[in-house]
Design a protein around this nucleic acid. Structure first.
Lengths: 137, 137
DNA sequence: CTAATTGCTCTAGTGACTAGAGGTTCAAGA
DNA sequence: TCTTGAACCTCTAGTCACTAGAGCAATTAG
């Protein structure tokens, strides 16, 4: 049995976050000590690692809840789990593409400033004047 | 003079968001009609375009406030504006790198599932078992 | 003049936590 | 056994950049 602090050290998830996951229904309410402190079994440690892994991959609490529900039904088709992973992949790719456009533009803005004062600072001018942009956005 | 709706249509920024920017001190409190409705001058339209542009580039409200303050002092050195742009660029690059790692891993997870049921679904197994990951994270 | 549209303020909700207050329990050393 | 200090408890509120809705007032087109 682990206290919340043990669990926190083993998973790298802070104690308030563990309580938050419980509140959100990702972790089941654990057993309690006589003095009302949480006592987690190994299964909870594993589930927390699952949650942390999924969060690191950018999945939302809601998606994770769905996956946990799914994982309780080993006999069902896994199309839903596949769909969640594929949607997440698509969204990550989308975000990368958008950030790369920003990178391009910021690079131009941040490296082209040869002025000395705000009056002729390229950063300020580029932000004021959309037509200085390399492409529309 | 533009009403808040005019401004919204011209800039693509929703009216509540415009009020929010005013509340956050990015836009100065505009003139008002006799009936207390906002009436914006052209300068405010331009500033709103500046704000929108900076937001699209991922700058925070705080950074934008700093840039606006700077832009009011045309005689000062522009090192601060440069710094803000460069910091933003660094943060964008950082996010891209992290997302690309996620992309890799999600790709592996989402395309490797050949199971038919949850019981042997690679998505679920990969999330449960960190050692299936291509690299640490 | 009336009806439809647009505007106003204020409050609360989003997601995924984080921080703090104010109190209780636990584990280890004396 | 007692005491002390760390860890734990619940509850509320704050973060960021908006967004939604209630309930009312002003404006504009016909």
């Amino acid at each position: 049995m682990y206290s919340i602090g043990d669990l926190s050290r083993r998973t790298g998830v802070k104690a308030p976050t563990i309580r938050y996951y419980e509140q959100m229904g990702l972790l089941e309410a654990p057993q309690r000590s006589e003095g009302n402190q949480r006592r987690f079994a190994k299964a909870e440690l594993e589930r927390l690692a699952f949650i942390r892994h999924a969060r690191d991959l950018g999945l939302t609490i809601n998606s994770i809840r769905q996956l946990i529900d799914l994982s309780g039904h080993a006999d069902r088709p896994c199309a839903d789990a596949d769909r969640i992973a594929k949607e997440q992949l698509a969204s990550v790719r989308d975000r990368i593409a958008k950030l790369q456009k920003l990178e391009e533009e910021l690079e131009r803005i941040a490296t082209c400033c040869t002025g000395e004062t705000i009056g002729d600072c390229y950063v300020i001018r580029a932000l004021s004047n959309h037509s200085l942009c390399g492409h529309e956005h």
